[in-house]
Each structure stands twice: as structure tokens, then as C-alpha cells.
Simulated scan of single mutants.
Amino acid sequence: MTGEPPFLFRGALPWTAFVAVLFWLNYSARAMLSPLLVSVEADLGVGHAAATSLLFMQSLGFCVAQFSCGFLLSRIRPFRMTGGSVLASGLVLIAMLTVHSLSRGRLMFMLFGFTAGFYFPAAMATLSSLVYPRDWGKAVAVHELAPNVGFIFLPLLAQAGLLIATWQGVFALLGGFMALVGGAFLLFGKGGRAYSAPPSFRGVSGMVRDPALGAIVILLAIATIGEFSVFSVLQIYLVGEQGFRPGTANIVISLARLVTPLAVVIGGWAADRRDVYRVVGIGLTVHAVALGLMCVPGARTPALIGVGMQAASIAVLFPSIFKAMAQAFPADRQPVLMSLSMPVSSVISAGLAPLFLGWCGEYLSFAVGFATVAVASLVGLIAVFYLARRHARCGESTL
């Protein structure tokens, strides 16, 4: 294709898909530790709590990068940060071959989280430049398929990688591919040539005092805990408390995720055609029930049903939560809203929650951790009720 973006959606699709591949690599690399935790524990001689501390260190680096991104994008072109993040992340993953102790692992995973954290804000700026505004929703939909497809194939790829390499080698193989694709995007990718405006924090203090921000953070945290935190301990839960072999557990996890791409589509349809607060409320309730099934001791069938229900209920939630965010705050406050809410929810869901679940699995039981998340999901209904009442008072003026 000749010319420069923006393009019509069909013409932009190859470049949109290119960015989606980068997101698939970024997200898969961040989640790859989860199906490898049993191997990591055996190799480093640590328990569940210590192993999941690697996820916590990764989340710390990730959040520092996200906080920095808004400032750096006014000085670095988005396409360079997008490709550079994937390239640098790949190089760090190759260096995982040097990890043979927990302390070295914590350092490397924090560094990896830092390099990976620059991807998302830069990629969103790149993606938005590829298409005209009327096609923005379709471009985002293509991009957001990446994590859901990743959840399906990631456990299988991890298991296949362990047949030919150590867990460090699996990361190195993925890192080599990431470095190649990130470098290719820097050379051949389109979009993201314009610098972003430096962030303005005017009105941030008022937003911080607004209870709606707290409600949004609560809902995002619960949703991302369900998406990432629960997934991060599923293998060691299925192996340790349900008696599966590691390879079989990874296959079960992949099969449970087959429905999630369809669930995302259903969630998007429901967000556009139904009351978003009712959709979120139902999703949180189903999520709590699913986690309750996973708490039934010594019963595989309820646990497996719960694993599938849990994945689907969370996938349905996200479109409605993002629409609720748009209804709670006007468009000119959305960038500040994202800069405040996303890092907080990320450090909770990608760091503290997996650490807590791992601690429960080692010293109590995973059922205690899952029950706690289920209770949090039901408490989240209070945030839904508050946002619904606020929207009813304000009408459609904040859309």
C-alpha cells in the first residue's frame, strides 16, 4: 500500500493487524509466567508465594513505565515507542537464560515489566492514527482480540516449549521472536508519526476527590483480577488442589478460554444495546458464582465448570466497564482518568492479587483466595449501583 495514514478501514487492516500481533506478543509475554509456574517453582526450589512474587515485581516495573508514558510520548514518536517496547522486551526475555535464583528472577521480571509497560499507550496512539475516527471502534476490536486469543494458545505454547527447553528457554524463544517482530515494525510499520501533546493535570485534584474515580478503579481492579490474577495461578491450582498433571492442566486452561472471544463480542453487543450497569452487575454476580464453584473441595466437575464460567463472565464485563467510564467522565478527562486508574488497577491485579492468591495456595488453600475474590466481586456491586445512580442524575450529558 502506498500513501500515509489515516486509511479506510479495509486498507488499514494489515497495519492494524500488525499492531495487534505486537499486542499479542506483549500480553502473552506478560502472562507466560503463569503456565510455567510449576516449572519455575521446581527449578528455583520455591513455593507458591515466592513464585508469584515474580509477577508482583513485573507489575511494579510495568506501572512505573505506564506513569512515565504520557510525558515521553510528547518527545518520542508513538510508533518508535511501540516497536521499541516490543524489541526491548524481547531482549530482556532472552536474558532470562541467566536466571537461576529467585533474586535474579525478581530483578529480570521487574526490568521486563518496565520495558513492556511502554507498549499500550503508544500503541493506542499509533492505532488511532491508522484509521479515520468513524473506524476507531473496529480498529480497537481487532486489537483487543489479541489477549483473548493469547489466553487460548498461551498454555499450549508453554507446554510445547517445555518439551524442548527449560522455562528460561521458553522465555528466550519468545523473546527472540518479539525482538524480530518489534524490529520489523520499527522498519516497516505505519502510523504513529505525530508526537502526542504533553499531559495536562489541570483538574486532577478534583478528579481524585470524585467518588466516581474510586468506583471505576474498583471495577477495573476486579475485572483485571478476574482476567489476569486468577489465570496466573490456575495451573498450580489445578495441579495442587485438583490433582491434574501440569500438561493436562494447561490443556484444560486453554479449552476453558475457547469461549472468551465470543464472550467479548457478546459483551460489546450488550454494552451498546442494554443497560451497561445491569450488564456489569450480572457479570460480577456470575463471576462470584464461578469462583464459588472453584472453591468446592475435592470436586473436579464443579471446579471445571467454574473455570469456564469465570473466564467467560470476565470477558463479557470489559466493554460495559469502558462504556461506564465514558459515561462517568467527559472525553477531555478520559486521558487523565486512564493515567490514574490503569496503573493502580494493574499493580493490584498483576502484582498484589497474584501474590495474595499464591500465599493462600501455599499456606491456606486456593479456595480461600478465590472466595476472597468472589466477595470482592459482590462488593463491586456497590460501585455499580453508585455509577448507575450518578448516570441517572446526570443523564446523557457526560457522554
Rank of each mutant, 00 (worst) to 15 (best):
W24L: 14
L44P: 06
H287M: 10
A141T: 15
L180H: 09
A353I: 12
R393Q: 15
L258K: 08
S349W: 12
T301I: 15
L93D: 11
Y195S: 02
Q235E: 15
G182C: 15
A367W: 02
G90F: 11
I222W: 07
A376C: 09
G292M: 09
L111F: 02
M207G: 04
G183L: 11
W15C: 00
G117T: 10
S39H: 12
L173S: 11
M96C: 03
F201P: 00
V40R: 07
M124W: 07
W15F: 12
S89Y: 08
I164N: 06
L213S: 09
S34M: 01
G380R: 00
V64M: 07
P35H: 06
F23P: 00
F231R: 01
G175V: 12
Q168N: 12
L60Q: 04
G169A: 12
R30D: 03
I76M: 10
R389Y: 05
L25E: 04
E41C: 01
I314T: 15
F9V: 05
A263S: 05
A311D: 07
G192S: 05
F385T: 14
L91M: 08
L180V: 13
F322I: 02
L238S: 04
V142F: 13
P246F: 03
S128R: 14
F322M: 08
G113C: 08
G292R: 06
L127V: 05
L399A: 13
L145T: 14
T82G: 10
Y237H: 14
A50P: 02
A383G: 10
G247H: 00
F114N: 04
P78N: 07
N250R: 05
G45E: 14
M338R: 08
I321N: 03
G369H: 07
P155K: 10
M110G: 14
G380P: 01
V239Y: 11
A256V: 07
I236G: 03
V233K: 11
F228T: 09
A116L: 13
V99S: 02
E144A: 02
A31I: 09
A139G: 12
A367Y: 00
L154D: 10
F185C: 12
I321E: 03
L378N: 07
